[in-house]
Every structure is written in C-alpha cells, then in structure tokens.
Design a protein around this nucleic acid. Structure first.
Lengths: 386, 386
DNA sequence: TATCTTTGTATATCCGTTAAACTAAGTTGA
DNA sequence: TCAACTTAGTTTAACGGATATACAAAGATA
C-alpha cells in the first residue's frame, strides 16, 4: 500500500510546480498574471517566484506594458538552465539531439547503421552522447538526463526485452548508460516517445486523449490519456501492430495471423510493391512523378491503416489520432483513403469531434519525446529538492 | 484553464478521504493502524476520525486485542449511513437493487420487459425506484444517489445518445430521473458499469488495469486504467464490439464489416446455432446434457472471443481481462478455447503476468457498478462539505 | 508492584497560504 | 500640473492544518 500522505510541503511543491508550468507555457508573463490565472494569492506567487529565480529556473526581463498602473515585471523560463539529450535508435540509423529545456534542438547528429549488434550500437551511442556533451554550452545544471527511444518492448526498469528488428533481447540499456554517464537515463518504446513528442511540441498540443500511430517498418502505438502516457502493467502497452484485423489473413513475423502491421506498415508496402522497388523513398519519388501504381499502393496502405484506426477510435474515443513515423511522409496519397474508410466504418458518434492529423515533428517525434521525458523528470526532481 | 490550486483545506479534505477509504477497505481498524499505514501523524488521524464519527460515517466498537499495551479502539465504516439504488436496463428486463454503502444488496427487484419504448420503461423504472425507497430502512443520509446502466452510448451529461437494442435515441435519462427524485443520478454504459462493479466487489479487486468484456447480445468493453474508469473524450470509449477483426468479413448492424460482435456475441451464437435453437439458456442446457454440437458452438464463440482478447492484451497490456455478462455463463466450454487462442497468438511478454478471469458477480456486475459510482460520488461530496 | 508498551489526546510549534497594509510606479482627468 | 485612481509587487500579521512533544489511559511483563 503506497498511500500518498498530504501535507503543506507537498502543497508548496505542487504550487511551485504549477507556477513554473505556467511560466513555461505562457511566458512572457508577470507575477500578477500568474496569480490571476492560478488562483493563488499574489503573496504566494511572489515568494514562489523568488525561489525559482534563485534556482535560476526563470529570469526577469525589463518591465512590460502598463495596463493602467504600475508596469509589471516580465518573467521568462530559463530554458538554458540545463540541457537534455534525446536519442532515437532506428533500424538503420541513430539520431541524437541536444535540446534545451523547451525542446529546441541545439545540436543534431545522425549516424547510419550497417549492423545492429548491441555492443556496436552502444559504442556509437556513447560516442555521440560524449560529443554532444563536449559541445554543450555552459549552464547551471548541465545535462539533466538522457532519453532513448527504441523500436521494441521496454520494461519499466529500462531494459529492452525484445527488439526484433534490431535483434536485441534482454539488454540492460538504462543501466549501461547510467553507469557510463552518471545522469538519469530513461528508456522508452519509440511509439510512446513519439506520442509524447507530438503532444508536447507537435500536432497534439491542444488535446487530452491522443493516440499516436508510429507507422514505420512495423507499427507501434503511443497512448496518451488525460494528458499522461499510458504504459500498461509492465510498460508494454500499444503493441497494436499485432492487433488482428483479418483472422484468416496472412502470417506475421510474430507467429500470429492477420496482424495490422502485416498490412499497413512499410514492410507491407514494400512487399506489395514487389521486387522492382527497394525503398519507401523511391516509391514516394515515383508517386510524386505521377506514377499511378505507386499512388494506388499508398492508397491501399491508407485503407489498411484506416481499418486499424477505426478500431482505435471505437476503442478509445480519443480527441485526436496522429499518424507518424516514416509512412507519414506519404500523407498526400494516404490521407483521403484513410478518411474514407473511417467515414464508412466508424460509429458516427465517435467520428464527430475526432481530429485526424499527421505528425508535425517528422523524424524528430521520438527524440523530442524522450527529451521531454527527461526534462519533465528533472523539473519534478528540482521542485522536490528545495 | 482550470488550474487546481493547492491549499491546506484541500490537504485536509484529501487526508480525510484517505482515512475514510482506509477504514472502508480495512475495517476493523484502529486509529493507530491508520496512522501507521497512511503515514499521517497519530494526532492528525485522531482529529479526522473524530470528525468522521460526528458525521456518522464511521462508528466505534469495543476495544480490540492488545499487542503488548493499551487495547485499541476498533473503528468500523457505517455502511448503513445511507443507501444507493442501482438499476440495470437490459433488452428484456430491468434489474434494480437497493445497496448499502459497501455494495451489499438489501433489496432486489426484477421486472421482465415486453417492449422497450422509453416512456414505458421509464414508468416501470420509476415505480421500482419508488418501491425501493418505500422499503428502505431509516438512516442518516437516506438515498445517496441513483445509478443506471444502459446498453448504449451515453454521454457525460447522462443522455443516452443511442441504444440500438432498445430503440432509444437521444433520451434525457439523467434529467428525467433527477427531476422526479431530486437525488444525484448517474448514467453509465452497461459495460463501463460492469467493469467498475467487478473492480470494486468482484474478480478485479486486486488489479490496477482491468479490461472488462461485457459479452451479451452485443459486446461492450469497460476500461479501467490505474484503478479509474477511462471514458474517452465524450464518454464513448470501449465500443470494441465494433472492432474489425475480419476486414472482408460479414456485415454488422452498424453498417461496417467484420466487427467482433458479429462473431463473438450472443447474437452471433444464436445465428450460428440456426433455427432450432432459440435462446442461450437452451443451448447451455443442451451442452450440460452432453450435446456435442452445442459444446462445439461455444468453443467456436470462445475462439472468436479469444481473437478480440488478443487485440485487447496487445493494446493495453492490462493486469487482468474479465469476461462478463450473459456469455460468461458458458465459461465451462469457452475458457479453454479462449486460452488456446491467446497462447497461440498473443505476444509472449504480454501473456506473462496476465490474469484471465470470468465475472464473479454474474448478473449483478452492472447494478453493483452503478451503485458503487453513486456511493463514491456521495463520499467525495460528503468529505467536501464539512 | 514496578517497568515497559501501545493507544489515544492535548498543547505548543512549525510551515505555507492568505488577508491587509504598504510601497512603487504608472495613468487619467479636471 | 497635480490629485485621484490603478496596477504590480512586497511586507507583516493572522489563520489553518499537520507535526512534535508531553502526557494520560490501559494493558503486558517480569
């Protein structure tokens, strides 16, 4: 039984976090505005703001516009009080970024992969991290954490239990990186990270219940409910790529039959395209040049995506569905087929207020998501220890 | 922006609710035990307990066993401080109960339905409620609320937007009942209510993330995540009966194709059974008498249920899946086929710690669920207003 | 019977929010 | 131009609730 007990320290911690959150979201903002929007008393805001100033998490700039009286002091979030590192390990690349605390990318490094052996990738990742650290500007808090997105099943202890496309099984990713760099490390499934990325910085900023579909070589889904990521009992939620949409359908790598990703993923697309096509990029180029076969292929993939999305909508009644990862590049030819399938199949009440969008962050969804994770963690910890 | 501001009144309210919750869950319990398990100070517990005593929400009984010192005063939840009414409107019946605040059924009334016209059913329901009220024992708080479970789409304002099997469309159920009885009324989808019922009083008491499958004439799903019911943007979540499991499959009443409930519901079963069988009960009797055809039919339905449950597990990575409503009566012949499908299809990591259970409350899942809803609401309100 | 334990209460203290008074610095209008 | 008014932010005192401490009640133990 883990019963949270309530006392005034917790009240303070939460109010302080609330004030900081408001500054982050609504900067530039004055103390008076914070008091008004938060409902806290002026004096309370004043004292909390002063603590945040001492911790250099925020700073003051000159006076703002008067609204009929004394001019307010404008507050800003000090987004360079520290930096976060976000890493996306793909099947044939590693993308790593250094971001400030608001998710702006300052440095970006890309490394193609020829093989996916764990030790090999780890040494590449460690090198990338080290060089990001070396190039990082000076700051009060330095690296506040490292986040890693992985295309596989990640448990809550940060171990990768299974990443079929990388050939990984039971690797202690979090422990290995923490031992090396001695900062907080968070590992997440790539789709979960992408969902958080789009929610914080991309297409999902205005919504509460978001389902992010990472349509790449396989399909994974990130589930955000009431603004927080839902991870399931062990952290394995969102493996909807292996949702059966055709009980007598084709075999899937997982051993089952008729899985969604056997029909609507990049792999499925290339399989349908046949031998004369060897990459998604090539197929997109053909479609751009007016190739009807290519366009038709994307339309078909769109339909299959639509069936799965139908299931998602009927299940979750979400505010928004976001389609991301590599297949989102083919939005132009997939969007209408998807919408048509939904219109013809999904329960009408569920369609009414639903937003269907494509990723805004493109290839950065995952790195920005894991970066947001470590920043959030840092901010919470920072609020606690003072 | 609805920013919850934190102050010591809220702290007190939450601590009081916490203390009450502990007494409800762990009675008989002493003040000292509460202090220990909650982490609150003895003195705090003492003062909160005294307030709860004054409100008659709890009471003291004689001293308990000594553990080497002064004997503790034993506290109990006063489960008859008020009563709740729970109503389950089915396609051919209305079941209504009067429960105490711990979900024990004191009075139960059953009324078969010949037709489902709204005004007709409403007059039956109102009569049942009135007679429950008339028979109710005296108590401090009287009727704390009325909960109603409905097989259809219910929005957050308590209107039934669509109940196909009842032929209802846009009926103001909550308003109508509140105007009549002047107590809080809560309307819920039957599957959501069933999920809460099983979580509070049935098979799901030890779990955090529960998916309850209401397999009846159609299929609905109640989703409990981190111990709270997930309702979706408009309250329409869990319409997984219309999850497509066979893209080229048979037509469904909803206009779509290959919906789960076209394969795994009571309707599907009777359709498969053909003209010579006219009810689930008859089929069960045949199976009990050793009829192989009947047993086989249930096995097939079990397989189809299994496919949908596979999707549920891969999606939610839940702690537990509970199968309830009328089809659960055929557990004997369905359980093994379901388990076999899961073993052969579901991702192995997701299977590991998963519990698959059948409803413990049987036909009472829904009524007890809505009753729990109104009790929870009452307890929250009561804590607030003192 | 004296000492130790455990339960529960009473009183004083601490901490954080709030209210009220006040300072600072602007606008507005006769 | 200056008095009156507004708005921003700080300071000080008051208030409310949790906690610490002391203590009383009641039983166990040796």
């Amino acid at each position: 039984m883990k019963t949270m007990t309530w006392n005034q320290q917790i009240v303070k911690k939460n109010n302080k976090a609330l004030v900081l959150q408001l500054i982050i979201e609504k900067e530039p903002i004055s103390r008076a505005d914070i008091a008004q929007v938060s409902g806290l008393h002026k004096a309370t805001v004043s004292s909390l703001v002063n603590e945040l100033l001492e911790e250099e998490l925020i700073f003051e700039s000159g006076p703002g516009e008067s609204s009929g009286g004394r001019r307010p002091v404008i507050l800003h979030f000090n987004k360079v009080a520290g930096f976060a590192i976000g890493i996306d390990i793909g099947v044939n690349y590693v993308l790593s970024v250094l971001t400030d605390l608001k998710g702006n990318i300052l440095i970006e490094k890309n490394h193609p992969l020829e093989q996916t052996v764990y030790s090999e990738i780890m040494s590449i990742v460690k090198n990338m991290i080290q060089s990001l650290i070396d190039e990082m500007p000076g700051s009060r808090y330095g690296i506040v954490g490292i986040g890693v997105g992985v295309p596989g099943i990640v448990n809550k202890e940060g171990a990768v239990l299974l990443a079929p496309n990388l050939g990984w099984k039971n690797v202690q990713l979090k422990t290995d990186l923490e031992n090396e760099f001695r900062v907080p490390v968070m590992i997440e499934n790539e789709a979960n990270a992408g969902a958080v990325g789009e929610q914080q910085f991309g297409a999902g900023q205005d919504y509460q219940n978001i389902i992010y579909i990472s349509a790449g070589i396989g399909i994974g889904v990130g589930i955000i409910l009431n603004k927080v990521l839902y991870q399931g009992r062990n952290g394995f939620s969102g493996e909807m790529g292996h949702m059966i949409i055709d009980i007598n359908g084709k075999l899937c790598n997982c051993g089952s039959r008729g899985c969604w990703e056997a029909y609507a993923s990049e792999n499925a697309l290339l399989e349908m395209a046949g031998k004369n096509t060897d990459s998604l990029e090539a197929l997109i180029k053909r479609a751009e040049n007016g190739d009807e076969t290519a366009k038709h292929l994307f339309g078909e993939i769109g339909q299959y995506l639509g069936f799965g999305i139908n299931n998602i909508i009927n299940t979750f009644n979400p505010d928004q569905v976001i389609i991301g990862n590599r297949l989102a590049m083919a939005k132009e030819w997939m969007e209408q087929p998807i919408r048509t399938i939904i219109e013809n199949h999904t329960l009408s009440h569920h369609q009414k207020e639903l937003k269907l969008d494509f990723s805004k962050l493109g290839k950065y969804s995952t790195v920005l998501g894991v970066s947001a994770f470590v920043v959030e963690n840092f901010i919470k910890e920072e609020a606690r220890t003072s």
